[in-house]
Structures are given as C-alpha cells and as structure tokens.
Amino acid sequence: MEATVEVTGLRKRYGPAVALDGMTFTVAPGLVTAFVGPNGAGKSTTMRVILGLDRADEGSALVGGRWYRDLRQPLRHLGALLDPAALHPARRGRDHLLWLARSQALPTGRVDEVLRLTGLESAARRRTGGYSLGMRQRLGIAAALLGDPPVLILDEPFNGLDPEGIVWMRGFLRALAAEGRAILVSSHLMSELQDTAGHLVVVGRGRVVADTGVAELIAAASGDRVTLRTVERTEAMTVLAGAGATVTVTDRETLTVSGLPAGRVVALLNEAGLPFSEVSAHRATLEEAYMELTRDAVEFRAPRPEAAR
C-alpha cells in the first residue's frame, strides 16, 4: 500500500453550516504536511472524514488508494491522534494501548515499544485521569504508532506541550517522516511547525487556500532582501542602486537592499572599496511566510461562526 492520503472534493454540511467545501489535497510520504488554518476552517472535520468517523456528503478520502472503512486492522495502515482526552480516566495508560493492540491483533511487545518511543514508560502504569495534557498527547502519539503505520494523522499534537515537549515533538515528527511515512499535522500556530513541515496545506472555510512546499514558500516570502550595515551609507546606496537594487534606509547605519543576492552585494561593495560591518540575507520565518500568504485572504479575517465540528 502506498503511504499517501488523497483527499478529493470533500463536501459536508452540518445543517445550514458548510463544514467542507470541496476540500482537496494530497499527503505525500517522506515529509510532514502541515494542515493549517483558523479554527473552524474544516481541519478536524477533514481528519474525521479520512478516518471514516464522519461521512462526507460528496468527495473521497483515500488512504493508500482505499477508503479507511475498507481497511482491515486499520491501525496498521494509518495512525491517528484526534482527541488526546479520549481516554477512560480510570484506565492505566498502558492498558489503553493494550486494548488497542488487542483490537488489531498486535503483539503486546508493540505496547512497550511505543511507550518507550514516546517516553511514557514511567507513567504507563498510572491512570490516565491523572495525566497532564502533554502526557495525553504523548499517549495519543503512542496509540497512533501502535500499528507502525506508514501514514499518521495528528490533530494539534503540540497543544499543551511544554517548550521541551515541542522540541521533542518536532524532532520526533521529522524522524518519522524521514523513515518515509506520510504525516499530516494540523495546527493553528505556524511557529510550532518551524523546521518540521515540508509541505503546507492552508485551509479556510472548508477548502484549500494554498498548497505549497515550505522551502519555496519561505524563499518567496524572504524575497532577495539583504540587510547591510555600513558607515558609508550614501556611497553604498549609490553603488547598489546603480547595479539595479532597490535600497531603503532602515536606520542611521543600516540599509535594506532588495533585488540583489547577498553575494552580489558583497562583491559590489568590495569593488567600490566601501567598508561594511554586516551583510545578511533575510530569511522569513514560516510564520511570516504564512502571514504573507494569508494576508489578503478574507477567510482569515472575518471567520463566520461556522460549526466547530
């Protein structure tokens, strides 16, 4: 089975509220696909449709070319974390994984393996009612990994994690993707996915607003802006403008140069014999790129009160 998720033209209404309005995207293997958008954009609904929990009115959501509902022992094909609070509080963490393992006829050894992978060994024999949100997220990830599936779908896995946990989660997701898994991670905070996501699907009001590789997006958002610090401000402006750059003054010793790569700026300054103390290419953060991308999209400014589910 191919490790992909293909979502095509999903539509779903809850009464008068449109939850999904032609949602279409693909989750490819080997990288983390960030699934972002404001609350109510349809992220969770899409995930529930992929998992066969909710029924779409139209469209298809295929896991490795098949509907989830047709999968036998589905946790071996797709692991999901939708709601970390979906636990019986009186059940121990390990027992929660144990019943899931039984349902997929998985060996008990897998339970201890995923506990180790998620760093939950010490809490495994405690009742989940006493878990922090971060521990529940880890238990949810452990449950998703139980069947060692090639596809992972995680809804807001960073919620409730402490900074250390966020770093752990990023590294963990990168490592899982590097193994060739297809991973869809929803989030409403882009900064969480910095250095993790390889692909970005931005949604709003039930449909895809942007579907792009993260590298290209950041390059585009960064532009060719170079920050230059020099005491010979006027001369530098003359030289660089002469080479075709647009130069603006940022403050007394700092200029922002657009239209020339940093190497070319350095070469031109050297030719002209002008001193400088800093030349740095500006690199946009994922968050900045995301803001740029969604700046004009009305979906992100006036969200109508749509059903949250």
Binding site: G30, Q73, R76, W99, S103, A105, G147, P149, P150
Partner: peptide
C-alpha cells in the same frame, strides 16, 4: 522517498480480536 512499510507482523483480523479488545 521510499514510502514506509509497517514492520509489524500481520495477524488475523476479525471479531475475536475485537472481543479480546473489549474484554481488555
């Protein structure tokens, strides 16, 4: 990218597994 393949050995699917799960 080489898509990931599950390393978990296959096992029989069916109601008995679910009954064991519910008993657990």
């Amino acid at each position: 990218i080489t898509p990931y393949r599950s390393t978990v050995p296959a096992a029989r699917d069916g109601l008995p597994a679910l009954v064991r799960a519910e008993w657990t």
